[in-house]
Structures are given as C-alpha cells and as structure tokens.
C-alpha cells in the first residue's frame, strides 16, 4: 500500500498531526518490590481477614 522512504516520512508527519493534544502530567514510578525476603506463602491465606472491610 505504501512503500519507500518518502511514503514512510509522509505517514510519520501525518501521524504527528493526528496525535492527541499535549497535556503532560507526572506519573512517578512506584515501589512495588520489597528488597528483603518474601513473606511466607502460607501466611497469605490468613491475610484476607486482617484487613477486611
């Protein structure tokens, strides 16, 4: 359907025009892993009852 450098460049320029308006916001990376040991798997089965609402 489209080939060659000129075609790709045209598509890239078009893609820039189609992009959503800029409205930046921060999305900080979170800490999701504890560096020290992993909690015992068996203890997990009691966890639902510690923080139920």
């Amino acid at each position: 359907m489209n080939s060659g450098h000129n075609g790709s460049a045209a598509i890239s320029q078009l893609e820039r025009q189609l992009a959503p308006p800029a409205a930046p916001m921060t999305m900080p990376e979170q800490i999701i892993e504890r560096k020290r040991g992993v909690a015992g798997l068996l203890a997990l089965f009691a966890l639902p009852f510690l923080a139920a609402r």
Binding site: P20, A23, M27
Partner: peptide, 9 residues
Amino acid sequence: FLRSSGGRY
C-alpha cells in the same frame, strides 16, 4: 500517553 496528554482528561 498519560505522561504526554493525560492532563486533558
């Protein structure tokens, strides 16, 4: 997307 345009929504 959020970092570039999320503030709009």
